[in-house]
Simulated scan of single mutants.
Amino acid sequence: MEDGEQCPNPGTDADHIGDPDDHTLDNLRTLCGPHHRRRTALQARAARGEMPTRRRPTEAHPGLIEQPKPDPLAEARRRAREEMERPPF
Rank of each mutant, 00 (worst) to 15 (best):
D71P: 06
R55G: 09
R38D: 13
P62H: 03
A44H: 08
R48P: 03
G4Q: 04
E50C: 03
T12A: 08
H36R: 02
P70A: 14
L73T: 10
P52Q: 03
E5S: 11
E85G: 11
E82H: 12
A80S: 11
D15M: 02
P68V: 00
P52H: 00
N27R: 00
T53D: 13
T30P: 11
Q43Y: 06
A76M: 06
L42C: 12
C32E: 00
N9E: 12
E66R: 14
G18Y: 07
P88L: 08
D26I: 00
L28T: 05
K69R: 14
D15I: 02
E59N: 14
P10Y: 03
T12C: 01
A80T: 04
P62I: 04
E75T: 13
N9T: 00
E83Y: 06
L25G: 07
R78K: 15
N27A: 02
R29G: 09
K69F: 07
T53P: 03
P70W: 00
A76Y: 02
P57I: 03
L25D: 08
R81H: 11
N27P: 03
R55W: 07
H36S: 04
E2R: 15
P72E: 05
H16P: 02
Q67D: 11
R37E: 09
H35N: 06
P20V: 05
P34V: 02
R39P: 03
H16W: 01
R77H: 07
R78S: 14
P70R: 13
E75F: 07
R55A: 15
E5L: 13
R45A: 15
G63K: 05
R38V: 06
T40V: 03
M1A: 08
D71V: 04
D19C: 02
R48H: 08
E2Q: 12
R54L: 12
C32Q: 00
P57S: 08
H35S: 05
D19M: 01
P88T: 08
E66V: 12
L73C: 06
P87K: 05
G4N: 01
Q43T: 07
R79G: 03
G18D: 11
D19F: 04
M51E: 11
E2I: 07
G11L: 00
L73I: 13
L73F: 10
G33P: 02
T53M: 05
D3L: 13
P87Q: 04
Q67C: 10
G49V: 02
P87I: 01
R45M: 12
A74L: 11
P20K: 05
L42F: 13
K69Y: 07
L42S: 14
C7D: 04
L64M: 10
R79Q: 13
E50S: 12
A47E: 09
A46H: 07
D13A: 00
P34A: 06
H61Q: 04
E75H: 10
L42I: 12
H61G: 03
I17C: 02
C7G: 01
K69V: 14
E59Q: 15
D26A: 15
P10A: 10
R86Q: 11
M51F: 05
P88H: 01
F89N: 14
Q43E: 15
A41H: 08
L28I: 06
E83S: 14
D13L: 00
